[in-house]
Write a protein that binds this DNA or RNA. Structure first.
Lengths: 240, 240
DNA sequence: TTGCCACTGTGACTTCTGTCACGGGGAGGC
DNA sequence: GCCTCCCCGTGACAGAAGTCACAGTGGCAA
């Protein structure tokens, strides 16, 4: 390890890496891990770095060892949609690399990240030689499909922006909510604008709907923490 | 082979199957193919059969040897959205089988189909033992992700129903259009209602927009064939 | 402190499109 | 032939939400 400017150590060597846990792509047997280690290059990015841009040829895949990144797509007129937020342990750009197709999204780190990068050809060689890694890729891709389908369901099947927002808040409760006396507490680490990009609506409607939910006593917001008082009401709004 | 009620022969044996071409999942080396053959069961379905339903536990995967099937998702109030149309050579339900999660869509054949079915456990065993098949699964899943992302882009980023419809028609031109003297000809094998389910809008708007396009001379429709006279106009409508 | 900037909150207006309602037409069954 | 579906075409209307415009707020830096 050597020290880095972003407050954490760069892990040079996958075998001795402490971030890894068994949900990670890289939780592999020793030999495969070593091969992955040798094929890849570690680096550290500050928040806000762009790893790759939609439409670029897929030169390689990126593994998030630590940190989070947001994936988004944009239309020609500048509107953009956040497709998902990727966490540590995920592999980005695999689908495009395998198909040798352009990246379908733009990836931007949203906090300091440690990333490993593998060139396309080497990645393919790697997974063809290591069946276990290949299977892990199928798992990774299955997750991506799963998420994408959920997103399709939410975008295509909901009747109103409120429904989509309610759905999103419930999903947040699932993944990061802590139960408290007054309800489920969670950190909003997004601005209204970003939320609007996540559910495909406008910033103002997000503000308005949150305001309405607050008035109806469903939730309350102070600073960046949101408390959901009436989860049942949110669930009732969702017909998905 | 033995004869079947739906006008084509049931292929009992993958090795001697003539449907297979190298775009198919099952274009595998002899030993892997034999294993796949032994793990799977062939059957024939008429059009309109439901292979599996959204929300069911993923008991297995289905391989379309011949025919087409539509995948759709539904909301509680009965609205439904067609996520895609799967063609011969595709594997359905892989993602869910790998994650051991419920199927995310309902699959219904839209023409007589020959299908092979493999139980989940056997499928996983099969791909873990045959690296080449496993790699093919990553390809299949990459395609699914790719499609899903395109769908997300279309649903989430387009400003109007016309834009989505124009996008869809252009996609049809790509995959099944034949160039003629008056423009690109293609077969509409869908009702307006189904189209509306594909782009997440109502039947009436599809009718109206098509009518408008006809009036503007962009396309003309007779019976089930559509002729696109002015492809540029359609492209101009799409800002995706 | 002051200024700046990004974020949130609100009002007014307009457009899109979903919904309801109905009519016509073609295919298929009896 | 006739009846019954299903599909397409249209009109009227209302509600949802995008857009524009602007005010208030809070954090951060100079």
């Amino acid at each position: 390890m050597r020290s880095s400017p972003y407050g954490f150590e760069i892990v040079e060597n996958c075998s001795s890496c402490s971030f890894r846990d068994n949900t990670f792509f890289c939780s592999l047997a020793a030999t495969a891990l070593k091969a992955f280690d040798q094929a890849s290059v570690a680096s550290v990015y500050p928040g806000g770095s762009v790893l790759y841009v939609e439409g670029q040829a897929a030169r390689g895949v990126f593994m998030i060892c630590r940190g989070k990144a947001k994936l988004s797509i944009a239309s020609r007129d500048g509107k953009s949609l956040i497709t998902r937020v990727a966490h540590a342990g995920e592999l980005l750009g695999v689908g495009s690399a395998i198909l040798d197709a352009p990246y379908q999204a733009t990836v931007e780190t949203i906090e300091p990240c440690q990333i490993r990068h593998v060139k396309r050809e080497e990645f393919i060689k790697f997974i063809r030689e290591h069946a276990d890694a290949c299977y892990r890729v199928t798992e990774q891709l299955s997750h991506e499909c799963h998420n994408a389908n959920d997103h399709i369901r939410s975008l295509g099947l909901s009747h109103s922006a409120s429904e989509k927002l309610a759905h999103l808040i419930l999903a947040w409760c699932e993944e990061g909510g802590r139960e408290g006396a007054t309800g489920t507490r969670l950190k909003m680490m997004m601005t209204h604008h970003e939320v609007s990009q996540l559910i495909g609506t406008s910033r103002e409607t997000v503000t308005r709907i949150l305001g309405e939910m607050r008035e109806r006593g469903i939730l309350s917001i102070r600073g960046s923490t949101m408390v959901i008082h009436n989860r049942a009401a949110l669930e009732a709004m969702v017909l998905l």
